[in-house]
Computed example of a mutant assay.
Amino acid sequence: MKGAIMEQSIELFANKGFKETSIQDIMDVLNVTKGTFYYYYKSKEEVLMDIQYQYINRLLDSQEKIIHDEETSYQEKLHEIIFKLLNDIEKEGLRAKVFFREMRHLTNEHLNQIMEKRDQFKENIQLVVEEGIKKGEFRSDLPPNIVTFGILGMANWSYFWFKPEGPIPDVEVAKIFYKMLLEGIEKKE
Rank of each mutant, 00 (worst) to 15 (best):
L127P: 00
E20D: 15
N87I: 04
Q113E: 11
V29E: 14
A174C: 02
E183R: 10
I10R: 02
F13P: 04
F18V: 07
V47T: 06
N124Q: 08
L152S: 11
I133C: 01
K163E: 14
M27H: 06
M6C: 07
E20R: 12
L59P: 04
I168T: 13
F13V: 05
E11T: 12
E123L: 12
L152W: 05
H68P: 07
E165P: 07
G150A: 05
Y41C: 03
G132I: 03
F13K: 00
N108Q: 13
I89T: 10
F83E: 15
E71A: 14
F177R: 05
K134Y: 01
I185P: 03
G35F: 09
S43E: 04
G136D: 07
E70P: 03
E172G: 07
V147N: 01
L94F: 09
A4W: 08
I67K: 06
S62Q: 15
K175N: 14
S73I: 07
F37L: 05
T148I: 06
E80Y: 12
I125W: 00
L12D: 06
F149H: 13
T107P: 00
M115N: 04
R104A: 04
K122S: 10
E189A: 14
E71Y: 10
Q8V: 14
G132N: 03
G136R: 07
T72E: 09
L48V: 08
E102S: 00
P164L: 11
E130I: 03
Q126P: 04
L182G: 04
I5P: 01
M115Y: 09
Y40R: 07
E165Y: 13
E76N: 14
E76A: 15
E123P: 00
F177K: 07
E189S: 10
R104F: 06
I23H: 04
L86T: 11
I67Q: 02
K19H: 10
S158G: 12
L30G: 12
L59W: 08
P164H: 11
H105F: 14
E80M: 14
T21H: 02
I114K: 01
M115C: 07
V32P: 01
I67L: 14
Q113I: 00
R118D: 00
F121T: 00
I133L: 06
S158M: 15
E45P: 05
M49T: 05
A14H: 06
K117H: 05
Y38I: 04
K175F: 02
V32R: 11
Y53S: 05
S140I: 04
K34L: 05
G17Q: 02
N31G: 13
K163V: 13
G132Q: 03
P167I: 15
